[in-house]
Write a protein that binds this DNA or RNA. Structure first.
Lengths: 246, 246
DNA sequence: TGCAATTTGTACGTATGTATT
DNA sequence: TAATACATACGTACAAATTGC
């Protein structure tokens, strides 16, 4: 076969990839930090000895990953600066791979449940009063009658994401948001399959309230149990194939 | 203030973003599926009425996200095809955001523990005999004396990732791999801080064996407990600041 | 109003890689 | 083997839009 250890197959590295690698190295080294400005496109062209196209392709990739921001014009914001908001990029990536059926919805639900458990457990231990107040007003907003699917989903997502933020685990919170974004359409479709919408809203909201009450009381174990049941129950009632019970 | 609801600030959408959006829409719609070929760059130029650079910038972004593959030449592989390997892209994204100190290491460890628990629980229920055999030979490979840090980390990672794959939850497995990749350097640094390396290897390997034995026996709860302790113990011994006990 | 710095968009030319004939 | 067709890869050059001074 061709597995001769003497010879390594030549991996052709395109020039824009080399640019990408060099910039990424500087980020991983810590030479480039949040808020820093990169050299302008034309400077990079000179320093790296490549064409502007290659530089721009690399910058576009970094931009899509949420690593840098680019602004036209001169002064202050102009040029590319190291940014660091991951969530949109993460959501987008997960959503696309969901659409390519790379991940089953059931798998995603299972992962989400574990994240939710982590979130409520930690939130029970270290949520600020201000965060709890916000959460409580969110649950109240969900009791307002006549919410349509879209609006309810928004509030529902915000409740769960804020709960995750209250755990002070940024990664868990970002993943939670990405997962929610990625399955938004599936969730709306699931809402459409609900027979008695008002009753569903009432019970979901009641469950939110119970979870929040446990968190406020610092009862992490109770909150974990409640949130796991909350998600599993809804998914089982309208979600479709059960992921592990067949 | 500038928060007048009458006026929406114009969000200028760059052309390559519009190209990106159109392609993403087709993926989200299901019009483009894994294995499908996109029109060639020059065809897209004609159909979309934009320049070739804009098309290529969009394709580069999709490529970096692991959504498409690009190959030169004619026939079969040529042009851009919808691919769908997410893992590298996910790892890369998480690693960069780790470097930007967007996520604390302790947060990442907490998330990882939850994923590991999910993995071993599900693996206990539905791992194939073939997967279990592979895992067992992996644990044996780790008992070979004289492994250096790099090699041990490789085997360690592979054990945990294969365990996650054995759970048949693709998302959990991919996330696990991404998290492992993202903290590889931190792990190697932690290894360097270990006083008695041989003893550490011995106990880590023994723990792997115990976890695997529980999984083989279908004892999900036991496996969960063991894996959580396995990770927490190592992290507490060399990892640094304890994430939740202060 | 104008000027400078910067990104953004387009057009075109050439080189390179791959499969078919 | 050579020729051909097709596709990406890379570069240069120029015009437009945006922002600050």
């Amino acid at each position: 076969m061709s597995a001769d250890p003497e010879w390594r197959t030549v991996r052709r590295v395109r020039t824009h990839e080399q640019v990408l690698i060099q910039i990424q190295e500087r980020i991983l080294n810590g030479q480039l930090r949040i808020g820093d400005r990169l050299p302008s496109e034309r400077e990079l062209v000179q320093v790296l000895g490549v064409s502007r196209n290659s530089v721009r392709e690399a910058l576009r990739v970094l931009e899509a990953m949420g690593i840098i921001d680019a602004h036209t014009g001169s002064g202050r914001d102009a040029g590319s600066t190291v940014a660091g908001r991951s969530t949109d990029a993460l959501s987008n990536l997960l959503r696309l791979h969901m659409a390519l059926a790379q991940f089953r919805l059931g798998d995603l639900v299972d992962v989400r449940i574990e994240l939710e458990r982590l979130a409520v457990r930690q939130a029970s231990a270290e949520a600020d009063p201000a965060e709890l107040t916000q959460l409580r007003s969110l649950t109240e907003a969900m009791t307002r009658p006549g919410l349509d699917h879209e609006r309810f989903h928004e509030l529902d997502s915000e409740f769960h994401i804020r709960l995750a933020r209250a755990s002070h685990n940024a990664l868990a919170a970002d993943l939670m948001q990405a997962l929610r974004d990625a399955v938004k359409n599936e969730m709306l479709a699931a809402f459409a399959r609900v027979h008695d919408w008002d009753a569903a809203v009432a019970s979901l909201t009641a469950e939110h309230l119970a979870i929040l009450t446990a968190v406020e009381a610092g009862q992490g174990d109770e909150a974990e149990t409640l949130v796991a049941r909350h998600i599993r129950a809804f998914y089982d009632s309208v979600g479709g194939e059960s992921p592990s019970s067949d």
